[in-house]
Amino acid sequence: MPDTPAAEKDKQMKQLKRRMECWREVILPLNSILLWEQSWHPGLILGLTTSTFLLMWFMEPAILTVISVGLLIMALSDYLGPILISTFCSTNSWTGQKERKLDEICQRLSHAITQLQSIWRTALWARTNHANMYYGVITAVLLGFALIGNTVNNLFLMYVIVNSLLLLPGLRHNGRMQKPIKLICSYLTRPKMS
């Protein structure tokens, strides 16, 4: 009898791979950029986000306009993307090495989704079993975010958040997150001097 968690992970990975099938020619280069396989990829990420946010800063669109244009771009790319990809990329160019790389990407995404689901289940468990602690932590975190949001320019805050999220996979992949995390942990765990 197969192991239930392993079988569930395998099933989830296969479903994810099936959903990404028509985008596979775009996913591989995008993964390469997000993992910084070339030394100029972080500059490309920062350059694209900086130019996008500078354009938004210059145009000063309303939030409804930003959301509408973002959703419009997503809808058009969802419709036109597979058509353009199948037009410009031949099916003969797909190799076994690319297939293995796509499997690896799907496994990592599936693992990340599983971790997020686990965090969500833990939060729900804490809300049920430790309601006072849960609501205290949620209140403190949200008040902190409200204070930061009120103090810092919202567009700059979004710029920092988007860049952090886009650079995080490359930082993790290249091992550049371990040193700062160890430094913070050693600072927090060292004995206090009186």
Results as ranks from 00 to 15, higher is better:
residue 177 M to N: 11
residue 140 A to M: 15
residue 6 A to C: 02
residue 106 C to R: 00
residue 22 C to K: 12
residue 174 N to Y: 03
residue 84 L to H: 06
residue 11 K to Y: 08
residue 151 T to R: 08
residue 132 N to K: 15
residue 107 Q to L: 12
residue 33 I to L: 08
residue 18 R to W: 01
residue 180 P to G: 04
residue 118 S to T: 13
residue 28 L to C: 02
residue 111 H to I: 10
residue 119 I to D: 12
residue 143 L to Y: 04
residue 78 D to Y: 08
residue 90 S to V: 04
residue 101 K to Y: 04
residue 138 I to E: 10
residue 88 F to R: 05
residue 26 V to T: 05
residue 1 M to K: 10
residue 88 F to D: 00
residue 146 A to Y: 09
residue 56 M to H: 04
residue 177 M to K: 03
residue 110 S to C: 15
residue 130 H to E: 12
residue 101 K to T: 08
residue 36 W to C: 02
residue 16 L to N: 01
residue 108 R to C: 03
residue 169 P to V: 00
residue 54 L to D: 05
residue 39 S to Y: 07
residue 81 G to I: 02
residue 95 T to N: 14
residue 24 R to A: 01
residue 56 M to D: 01
residue 180 P to S: 06
residue 107 Q to H: 10
residue 27 I to T: 15
residue 105 I to S: 01
residue 52 T to M: 10
residue 64 L to I: 07
residue 140 A to E: 12
residue 120 W to H: 14
residue 22 C to F: 05
residue 188 L to R: 07
residue 59 M to I: 01
residue 159 Y to W: 15
residue 37 E to C: 04
residue 169 P to A: 02
residue 91 T to H: 11
residue 121 R to Q: 14
residue 94 W to H: 04
residue 92 N to I: 02
residue 135 Y to S: 14
residue 47 G to L: 14
residue 194 S to K: 09
residue 170 G to C: 02
residue 82 P to L: 02
residue 75 A to L: 14
residue 8 E to C: 12
residue 64 L to G: 10
residue 123 A to S: 11
residue 86 S to Q: 13
residue 87 T to D: 04
residue 167 L to K: 01
residue 87 T to C: 03
residue 168 L to F: 10
residue 175 G to H: 04
residue 155 L to H: 05
residue 56 M to P: 00
residue 164 S to P: 02
residue 148 I to K: 14
residue 32 S to I: 03
residue 130 H to F: 08
residue 159 Y to Q: 03
residue 190 R to G: 02
residue 123 A to F: 09
residue 159 Y to A: 03
residue 20 M to D: 03
residue 90 S to K: 08
residue 69 V to N: 03
residue 183 L to M: 07
residue 84 L to R: 07
residue 38 Q to I: 01
residue 189 T to K: 13
residue 39 S to W: 07
residue 27 I to P: 00
residue 111 H to T: 14
residue 176 R to I: 05
residue 41 H to N: 06
residue 108 R to Q: 12
residue 107 Q to R: 14
residue 121 R to E: 10
residue 2 P to C: 06
residue 141 V to W: 08
residue 94 W to N: 03
residue 69 V to A: 07
residue 138 I to M: 14
residue 17 K to M: 13
